[in-house]
Design a protein around this nucleic acid. Structure first.
Length: 464
RNA sequence: GGCCCCAUCGUCUAUCGGUUAGGACAGCGGGUUUUCAAUCCGUUAAGCGGAGUUCGACUCUCCGUGGGGUCACCA
């Protein structure tokens, strides 16, 4: 008894039904995305249903987190329901089932002192249930081992299996798109459907999103809430793009998709059966692609959100283009500016502190590659100082281009055998940045300004 | 353990019986370069095992193995 139905005359309705018992992470997010894409692809409805029948574990904060995350990702829904507000409806239908004999009030011996003495159980017809899954094909279960399972703690406290089925029915859900972990719940839910006189929707059980250890992604396994990706400086478009390609792909070699392109391309039949490991490196790559596409103004406004203190730095506009091509997430900016980071030269004190004698780095690192002759480095630094001294110190004219122009001929005049340009540029750059890695010495000079540039070069010169 | 689902490079995946098994991330090598990054070019790397079916299996069937999910008065 396969459940073939026709979709010809029924509008597609999908739903995303999270329970607000934890922060919204990639596992549930992927389910939301697929249900959303499928609905939009077929010009159908997408419903958000908060499954908060567990009053103890559900919180408003978690619900807000779900809603906020969906909004951040631009997954708009056509209707929203909260199961905690539908108690009367459930009660009415629970009574119907009890009346028609498919459910009954069962006397229980409390497991703990003071425990419940009666619950509502479903009268299990103990039969085999076969259903068709859009992704996996026919699946058959024998429901006998389920026994007369509980569908409500009381008339006012229905539980998951009952409310899911009833709501899907009442809300006209045509396609139940959910995680694979619900496969084994499906047969008992179909039993309830039959008792309710409801039609069976299409089922599509998605492969799970896995952690590095290949087990179901969960907070416990280190899955970050989506809102955490936001605060770490990930773009919603990148997160959406990445997660959409987890367990699904259009069969082409295209990798970058806008939301609209995803809607157009999405196809449930191309969904994978096996689980997919969530890979942070690839997410970072996607994010980098999207950051690169940002206009200068957009880039700056995103930095403002993630690292406002950085925008206030005097030379921020000078390094912004550098940052945009370097970072994978906006959170990287803080790392770059922190002590030891490639941009630390902007914030480290090179004045030598109270005694005025100590350099914030090891002077011997000024030596380029195999160079051992300190006097050569001193000569080179001295020449650089001379060349820069004659430049106009005005902030508008002491630019990276001007500094480069002033230095370049001299640096290029050094023969390869004597170290080439590197023998000039490395000590210069290191003197200015105090870092093994940093932007080039010209841009650093511009950022520091003439006075600070010369001060640092002189201090390095004197330290040798 | 019972039941259920799954199985191509380290990872995400293409292949719908016939391919030198393709792409992307990561890795590695190189060009460029004062360093790192970026960028460009190149490159390593895969059909879990065994039986079948077939002229021919990564692809279909079965068994095994492995992994995962689920077994609540949670969802």
């Amino acid at each position: 008894m396969s459940v073939e139905k026709s979709t010809n005359n029924s509008k597609v309705v999908t739903r995303f039904a999270p329970s607000p018992t934890g922060l919204f992470h990639a596992g549930s997010y992927r389910t939301a995305v697929f249900a959303y894409l499928f609905a939009r692809k077929h010009a159908g409805h997408f419903i958000l249903r908060i499954e908060d029948t567990d009053k103890i574990r559900s919180t408003k904060a978690n619900e807000d987190n779900i809603i906020e995350s969906l909004k951040w990702l631009h997954l708009d829904y056509d209707a929203m329901y909260r199961q905690s507000e539908r108690t009367e409806i459930y009660k009415e239908w629970l009574n119907k089932l009890i009346t028609n004999g498919t459910a009954y009030i069962s006397k229980e011996t409390p497991k703990e002192p003071g425990g419940r003495t009666e619950v509502i159980r479903f009268k299990n017809p103990n039969k085999k249930v076969l259903f068709h899954d859009l992704i996996r094909g026919d699946i058959e279960f024998d429901t006998t081992e389920l026994g007369d399972f509980v569908i409500a703690k009381s008339l006012e406290e229905p539980i998951f299996h009952f409310v899911v089925v009833l709501d899907d029915y009442l809300m006209g859900v045509t396609h139940v798109i959910r995680g694979e972990d619900h496969i084994s719940n499906t047969p008992r839910q179909i039993l309830i459907q039959q008792a309710l006189g409801a039609t069976t929707p299409f089922y599509a059980h998605l492969p799970l999103v896995l952690g590095e250890d290949r087990s179901k992604l969960s907070k416990r396994k280190g899955a970050l809430p989506l809102t955490e990706y936001r605060t770490r400086g990930y773009l919603p478009e990148a997160v959406l793009n990445f997660i959409s390609l987890l367990g699904w792909n259009p069969g082409t070699e295209q990798e970058l998709f806008s939301l609209n392109e995803l809607v157009q391309a999405f196809d449930l039949t191309k969904v994978q059966k096996g689980g997919a490991v969530f890979n942070d490196e690839k997410l970072a790559w996607f994010n980098k692609q999207y950051i690169a596409k940002l206009s200068k103004a957009e880039f700056i406004s995103h930095v403002k959100e993630c690292a406002p203190e950085v925008v206030d730095l005097p030379s921020f506009t000078t390094i912004a283009p550098l940052l945009q091509e370097k970072i994978s997430s906006f959170g990287d900016i803080r790392t770059l500016l922190a002590p030891g980071g490639e941009l630390a030269f902007m914030t480290i004190d090179f004045s030598g502190g109270a005694t005025g004698s100590a350099l914030p780095y090891d002077p011997t690192a000024l030596l380029w590659k195999g160079e051992t002759d300190i006097s050569k480095v001193k000569t080179s630094l001295k020449k650089v100082i001379e060349l820069l001294s004659v430049l106009d110190g005005d902030s508008a004219t002491f630019s990276a281009e001007k500094v480069k122009a002033a230095i370049w001929d001299f640096a290029s005049s050094i023969p390869k055998e004597q170290g080439g340009r590197g023998s000039v540029l490395w000590p210069m750059r290191y003197a200015l940045s105090g870092q093994q890695k940093s932007p080039d010495p010209f841009i650093i000079s511009e950022i520091l300004g003439k006075d600070e540039t010369l001060a640092r070069l002189n201090r390095a010169y004197n330290a040798l």
